[in-house]
């Protein structure tokens, strides 16, 4: 078995994954490996199904074909209770933070502990304060989620994601819509949490600069396929036109500026059919 060998140093391996939504193929036979203890980034333009990939890894969606192994277990063949046990060892940081809006910051971080452990309240308090201290928000424990800035929500969500000391964290667009300071804070946090806690991290992002700064390995996806992979340096020097366009942000290239349409002049000159 390929997976039993590769699961030694790969925490997650995606094999020949195909997934479509309606008639649109999101992934077309892709295979990816995520090494233990490393930060691996999935990059690609918006709408390439990066978030979908995280949901597939977390077992929230089912692939049409192919399989995903997390820590040697085939995610989509697990029974419900086994899947839930696996998820307890995964942390996921949603783009929106996904904090529970009817609870304080403290209760949000305490939520997984209260749901999954029978620890006494005093112990939960200590743990929560430690997690909040790690993300620098111990002082914000009594605030409600709607009183937090976008960057702060993400940090609280991160504290919640590490509450059960997971083996892996999945980050969904952690840098989108952040000001430079909170961006810097998040980049620093992701890197240091990964190293200090010995986590494995998967970052889904289209932010080229900051992601390259912390990722150990990068996959570039486009239209359901892997168009480039390698260390950040290798990606920078990739001779693939597509990867170059993505990394430099050129307006036109393999990805066209224009949405497919008929000829411009014809379109202007035609009488214009009314619908």
């Amino acid at each position: 078995m390929v997976n039993s060998v590769s699961s030694q140093d790969n925490l997650v391996s995606v094999r020949n994954l195909t997934f479509s939504r309606g008639s649109k193929k999101i992934f077309d036979d892709i295979s990816l490996d995520f090494k233990r203890g490393r930060i691996t980034a999935i990059m690609g333009p918006s709408g390439t199904g990066k978030t979908t990939l995280l949901k597939l890894i977390g077992g929230q969606l089912f692939p049409d074909r192919g399989s995903i192994f997390v820590d040697g277990q085939n995610v989509h063949q697990l029974r419900r209770s086994e899947l839930y046990d696996l998820r307890k060892r995964l942390g996921m940081l949603f783009q929106s933070g996904a904090l529970l809006t009817d609870m304080t910051v403290f209760d949000n971080v305490a939520f997984p502990l209260r749901e999954h452990t029978h620890l006494p309240e005093s112990m939960i308090r200590t743990l929560v304060l430690m997690k909040l201290q790690a993300v620098g928000l111990r002082g914000a424990r009594d605030l409600m989620p709607n009183e937090l800035s976008g960057g702060m929500s993400r940090r609280v969500a991160l504290a919640r994601a590490i509450a059960l000391d997971p083996m892996m964290i999945l980050y969904d667009e952690p840098f989108t819509g952040q000001d430079p300071i909170s961006m810097g804070v998040l980049v620093h946090l992701i890197k240091s949490l990964n190293n200090i806690l010995g986590l494995t991290s998967i970052i889904v992002s289209h932010d080229v600069h900051d992601t390259s700064a912390i990722a150990d390995y990068i996959y570039v996806l486009s239209e359901g396929r892997v168009v480039g992979q390698g260390t950040p340096e290798e990606i920078q020097q990739s001779d693939s036109e597509w990867v170059q366009q993505f990394m430099t942000g050129a307006a036109d290239g393999p990805v066209h500026f224009h949405y497919p349409a008929k000829d411009y002049v014809d379109d202007l000159m035609s009488l214009g059919k009314r619908y």
Partner: peptide, 17 residues
Amino acid sequence: LMKATEQLSGMEMMAVD
């Protein structure tokens, strides 16, 4: 709204039904 703001999805990922 909990669904729209991914709170339900987030709970599932925290292994809470």
